[in-house]
């Protein structure tokens, strides 16, 4: 074998364990889900093997699924915007800090050491009727009776922001870190105020990071089911909850498969749009 041929093979040899894992653990199960989506659930809960379009017809034509999908996208959008508004200044502070950058980054990573479910449930102890906030407000006399703060749309968004904010900050931070600070100095020396320099130089250059963080927050937010389950009220269910219910509660794996593929298609389309205009490189940088 020639040297060129060996060199050409080397990347594939190195990639093969990862590609095998992705193929076996992602594509094969996904293929099962696609196949399942064309089966039917019988009255006993057993699956009827075949090629039926009933699940797809129901998933695509029923207003119930459409409405919940739109609600999910709305919650994910609000969460992403809140994360962007809160995350950008935080990322800016970390990126521009001189001596304590490592400490700030460590603090940013700290929540990842605790289970997502535990972090979500912690809000019950904070916002509950006998939680920390109500107790404090009662103690200082601001309120006479505990306020009902939990189990509504706001607490779902709060829980999602709590979960997703570090992803946004990390992405924006990586983007800001890559910007040469001399550019701001140059803008200042040409007469721009610090605010103008930020608006016309730093912000545009950091937009890819903001977009990458936004995409991550949106996709993860739209696919969540734990947060609405733990912090939501009766009508705060998101699309992933429908998938959970179809598969777990109703034992309707075929319909659950169709619904999960529907969500995957919507979020996949979003990723493709992002990739078309901004490329995946920035996202990979943020994740890295």
């Amino acid at each position: 074998m020639s040297v060129e041929a060996r060199e050409a093979r080397q990347p594939w040899i190195l990639l093969s364990p990862a590609l095998t894992a992705v193929f076996l653990l992602l594509f094969v199960p996904l293929l099962f889900i696609v196949v399942y989506s064309f089966w039917l659930r019988t009255a006993t809960g057993a699956d009827q093997v075949g090629f039926f379009l009933d699940n797809w017809r129901e998933a695509l034509s029923d207003a119930f699924y459409r409405d919940i999908l739109l609600f999910t996208l709305k919650i994910a959008t609000i969460t992403t915007l809140v994360c962007a508004l809160m995350g950008y200044p935080a990322a800016y502070v970390i990126a521009r800090s001189k001596g304590n950058k490592a400490l700030l980054l460590l603090l940013l990573m700290l929540p990842f050491w605790i289970s997502y479910i535990i972090r979500t449930m912690s809000w019950i102890n904070i916002l509950g009727v006998s939680g920390a906030l109500n107790t404090a407000l009662l103690y200082v006399g601001v309120i006479d009776e505990p306020i009902q703060m939990l189990y509504n749309q706001t607490t779902v968004i709060l829980g999602l922001v709590h979960f997703l904010l570090p992803f946004m900050i990390l992405n924006v931070f990586v983007s800001l870190e890559g910007i040469d600070t001399n550019l701001e100095d140059a803008a200042n020396s040409l007469g721009a105020t610090r605010w103008q320099a930020f608006l016309q130089v730093t912000l545009p250059l950091s937009l890819p990071g903001l977009a990458a963080g936004g995409l991550l927050c949106f996709v993860l937010g739209a696919g969540t089911y734990i947060t609405p389950l733990v912090l939501g009220g009766p009508s705060d269910a998101m699309f992933a909850n429908l998938v959970f219910e179809a598969i777990i509660t109703q034992l309707n794996w075929p319909l659950g498969s169709a619904l999960s593929l529907m969500l995957l298609a919507v979020l996949g389309a979003l990723v493709m749009v992002y990739n078309r205009y901004l490329g995946m490189a920035q996202l990979m940088k943020g994740l890295g």
């Binding site: 659930r41 009255a43 809960g45 009766p234 009508s235 269910a237 509660t249 109703q250």
Partner: peptide, 16 residues
Amino acid sequence: HEQDWSKEFGRVQKGY
């Protein structure tokens, strides 16, 4: 009634 009612409850539960 399991098949119909579990599905119907899934909807009613979410405000339908």
